[in-house]
Structure formats: C-alpha cells, structure tokens
Nucleic acid binder design. Sequence first.
DNA 1: CTTATACTCCAAAACGTTTTGGAAGTCAAT
DNA 2: ATTGACTTCCAAAACGTTTTGGAGTATAAG
Lengths: 340, 340
Amino acid sequence: MTVTIREVAQKLNISITTVSRALDGYDDVSDETRRLVVDTAQQMGYVPNRAARQLRRQRADTIGYILPTETPRFSNPFFAEFVAGLGDEAAANNYDLLVSTAPPKSAAEQEIYARWVHGRKVDGMVLNRLRQRDWRVQYLAQNVFPLVTLQRSLDPLEYPSVEVDGRRWFRALVEHLYSLGRRRIAYVGAAADLVIQTERFQGYQDGLAALGLALDAALVVEGDLTPEGGYRAAQALLNRPVPPDAVACVDDITAMGVLHAAHEMGCVVGKNLAVTGFDGVIGFEHTHPPLTTVNQPVYQIARQMAQMLLAQIAGRPLEPRQVQIEPVLELNASTLGAQK
Amino acid sequence: MTVTIREVAQKLNISITTVSRALDGYDDVSDETRRLVVDTAQQMGYVPNRAARQLRRQRADTIGYILPTETPRFSNPFFAEFVAGLGDEAAANNYDLLVSTAPPKSAAEQEIYARWVHGRKVDGMVLNRLRQRDWRVQYLAQNVFPLVTLQRSLDPLEYPSVEVDGRRWFRALVEHLYSLGRRRIAYVGAAADLVIQTERFQGYQDGLAALGLALDAALVVEGDLTPEGGYRAAQALLNRPVPPDAVACVDDITAMGVLHAAHEMGCVVGKNLAVTGFDGVIGFEHTHPPLTTVNQPVYQIARQMAQMLLAQIAGRPLEPRQVQIEPVLELNASTLGAQK
DNA sequence: CTTATACTCCAAAACGTTTTGGAAGTCAAT
DNA sequence: ATTGACTTCCAAAACGTTTTGGAGTATAAG
C-alpha cells in the first residue's frame, strides 16, 4: 500500500542506503543523485515509516503531555491554548505531540508514564499543575528523562522550568484592591498541595501584611478551579455576617462563578464588591463586568516550554534553565467599576 | 537502560517467543510458564517497545486529531473537553492520542496528514469543524483510511459520524425567542463554508419561516467563533436604526462577546435584549446573565467518536454508522429575564 | 608509476518486537 | 510398537529504517 524506501531504491537502481542518505542530507551523495532521489521520492509519495525510524534511531520525535482531568467532564480554555502552543512548537520542529488524560496522582496516570517513558513512546514530558511534592518530577528525574515544568515543585531536583511569579503578581492584585479602598479582601483558592495555590495564597498574605491588614480565616475559602467551586465559595462568603468587599480568586474560571453568585445575590460588581481573577484565559474581557486579572501569555509559555524541552532532548545546552515570564496586570471594571 | 524482551527471556532461560506469547495471552503456553513470565516481566519493569511492536504489527495503536487553530492564540474550552474525551476513550482501549495543530485548509495541515497517514503514525483520524466540501474527508476516504467526523460534509462518501441536529435545535432556540415575544431576531454566524454555520443558519431560517417572520439581511452578521467577533457583530447590530430585540449566536463563545457589547451599550440582557448561544461550553451558566443555549455533551460525543473509530480500526462491524446525539435546551436568564 | 585524497556509493548489521511453521515430548488409542 | 492428538515450546524470518565500515573510481600529488 504505502511506498517504502526499498521501492524508491529499486526504481532508481540504487541502494536503499543511498536513498536514505540522500534524503537525510548527508554529503556523501552527489548532487545529481540527490536531486533524482528527492524528486522520485516526492513523486512516488514516499514518507518514511515512523516506527521503523524510531526503532532504529531510538527516539520517537514526540513529546508527551497529560491533561489533568480532575473531573470526568473536563473543560478549561487554559488547556486548549496550552496544548495549541505545545503542538505548534512541536510541529515547527518536526516533532509530534502525544496527549493523554488522567486524574492527577491516579494509577492511570502512573501507568501512562510507565508506558510512555519506558516504552520510549515519547522523548520528553511537559508538566504543569505541579504539586508541592510531585511524584512525576521525581519519577522522571530518577529515570533521567527530559522534562520541563510550568512552575516548580519543592523537590530539590535540577530540571528546567518556565515560571510566572504568582506570589508577586497576586500581591499586586491585592494592593490594587487596597488602593481602591477595599479592606475586607477575601480569597478563593484551590487544593492546598497545588503549587499555584500556595504561591498565590502566599502573595495574598504578603499583600495583606504589607498593607497592615489582618488575615481573617473567615475570608479564605477553598474552591476547585471550576466555576461551580467559585460559585459556592462566593455564596458562602457573601452570607457571612460581615461579608467581604472584595474577592480575589485563584484563577479566572473560579472568578466566573464568583461573578455569577455575586450578581445573583444582588451585588453590583465593581461597586459594592470587587472581584479579581488570575490567568488571562479566553474571554476574561468579556465577562460582566470585564474581569481584572493577571494575564499570562499561555500560548507563548507553552511554546517556550516545548522549545526548552526539545533543546534538552537534542542535547543542546540550555542557557537559562529557568525562564521567567512576565504577565500583565489587566485592570477592568470588575474592580474599577463603571467609570470608563 | 530500558529492559527488553530478550533480557526477560534470558533471565528465565526461555525463548523470546514464549515470553511474547505468554504476555499476549496465547494459549500455547502453560499456566505455570505464563505466571512466571508475567511476574518476572512485571518485576523487571518490562514494557514493550512501541516502535518495534508497531513496526511488526503494522499499526500504531494511536489515533490522531488536529486542533483547528485559526488564530495563533487559540483557546476554546470546547476543544479542551473534546480532547479530554478522545484521550479518555483512547486510553481505556490502550490507544494513544496524537495531537497537532494547524490552521484549517493550510499547507501545514496537509503535511501533517501526509506524515501521519502515509507514515502510518496513526491508525485513524478524528475530524470536526467540517467544511461543506472537506478535503480531509476526501483525502482519507481516497486512501481508505479510518476516520470519524462530528457532523457531515456534503461529500457523497460513506464514512461514520456523530451528529447533533444543529438545524432542528437552532430552530428550537428561535421558537423559544418568539414565544417570549421577540420579533426582530438577529443572527451572528461564522464562516459560510463551515457545516455548523450552514446547519444552524438553516435552522434560524426555518424558525423564521415557520413563525411567519421575514428574513432581514440587516440582522444577519458574520462572526468568527471568538468573543471578539461576537462583540463587534453586536456593536454593529445594536447600532442599526432599528436594532434587534434578540440575538441568536452560532456558538457560546460568540455569545460571550455579544453579552459584553450589549452591557456596554446599556442593554439589559433578558429584558430589552435576549441572547442565545449554542454548544453548552464551560461556564455558560455563569455568564451574566446565565446564557440560554443548546447544551451538547461534548465529552460524551468525543468518547463516542473515539469508540466508533476504534471499532472501525479493529475491523469490528459498526452497527449504526451514524449516531445522533440529543443535546438539551438550557433556558436561562439571558432570554427569560430575571424572573427566577 | 605509485601513492594519497576525495568523492560516491553500498552490503550488511542492527533496532525490539510478533508471527510462522514446525519440533519435541506426553499420553491414549489402536 | 505404532499412530494420532495434544500440549508446550522455539528458531528464524519478517517489519522499514539508519548507521557502520568499507569498496570502488576518479583525480591529484609525489
């Protein structure tokens, strides 16, 4: 069915070695032969069999990524953009992207790692949604397997990563809220062992401390990075005897739910309640009111990560092994009110 | 580094044939040997090399999907959920999911198809965002390559698909709007050659016709399936001499932008303007006001598609080659108003 | 004329599986 | 004792590449 290197060679009456080398650009084949080979291969529709190549070369030309599907019905624009970035950068380097899904820390997740890493199905792994202690990082480091992460775990290991300073920027949000006169600033977070949670929560605390505000446990609620989580958290907060005058959310998705609950309970967001998000995920400018958030270039981040991973796989030296990405603070009506 | 079948065989002093057959569950190996082999393999951490297996078996145990990244910064929750569904179903059958990204109809897209299909990198392809005439469908059908699609192109070819009746359900939305007293119902669509556009637009026209409303070209605007597209479209519509009293959008993402523009221009959505979406993408219940839409079980759809594709690859007969999925109409405040 | 130096080419050996086509042994029936 | 039917195993051949280690020709240098 499909045409092999052998058929190309046969047609030209030369060895498969020469065909292979001609196509791969070695310089021990004459220009004339090369042209001939390239043309014939093209015209016969020859495409190297990936399995054979991979078996021989001992690499897959593929990088892997596992979607952290906490819930069965998982859907989050952050990941669509993230995967698109990985895919584009991979494709630009003639690599493929292998994707699977598994709940974090599950047996299923471990099995995929075993299959992919030991079965050499991929040459490197991309990780995000890091945990403070992350078995994936430990596992890969132990197997000396290329990886790159978004944010860093606390594991004392050496590996490349891309980072956004969640602590600093979350603090900036808190300071922004303070500057608008907000004094009872609530926090809606996520699972405690997630790195983004600890960082951003730390930033929240930093902000309060710097501004001389006390940390009020009644104003800190755990969400789950879904709109529903944010919705429930906001309901709880707004029913407090003394409700908050601002809610800082761990991410934009959570903030969506908070906005919803706030409207439902009659708050005028931007006026008697300020709300902030984090991530800069699609459509944050189109919520009502438009959301104040920290906008990360997710697509760029993903490309950067893929690029670092590929460099590592190719054995190229990776100059800065930890890259800082600067997000931008987007101030919108959800905190500023209807003034513009 | 990694342990091969040969090492397992050596350790047990048996042939690699037997190890292979024991692990694959053939019945020409004694129970005792099988137990021994399985245990040792497990304990030595043996994982079959995928490339070798694929080369020998002439299949990849992998299905492919290409994200239709129209814009460089692409992010759409629909696709996160879709990919999660594909990934889960694939994983459940010991298959992997290969993902890439390419602008529809681009040279890059064609190249990926060539690589994957001819290089036998995948055993089948999943397609969505179909066009009325879709080169991908034609190409795959021509190469007798397994595929499954969401919605169908007009190409007169026989291939399995999953469908949601966009025409019927969009009409239902229009009828719903009419029942609430809306008479100037606008439509914000997408590129004309997209199947979802033609179907849903047809449903829009069906609805108007059935209700005795005339099609007013001034109320039909083309968007691009992004919030920005919806935002611009709504601005144009609301600035018309006689603005619409309802806007039916081709999808939820577009509707987000429409909501934004409406608020900005002082409309009270649900009261003097009704808005509807389509898809049931994350957070539609959490927009302000919550969006009336047609909610499709995207995750289920994706799993169903993957399942049909895998059956086809395995050569299992596919009973219904065209599966209808029933979405549900979600009536919310964006049309009903604040009554609840 | 011999020796060195490029320049082109190629046969054969891998890579790690699965599958084919038996071989060897055991047991029961003739 | 031979035959036939099972059961359990295995050697060797694939699968389609890339890479190794030369071999063969010219051309230039000694």
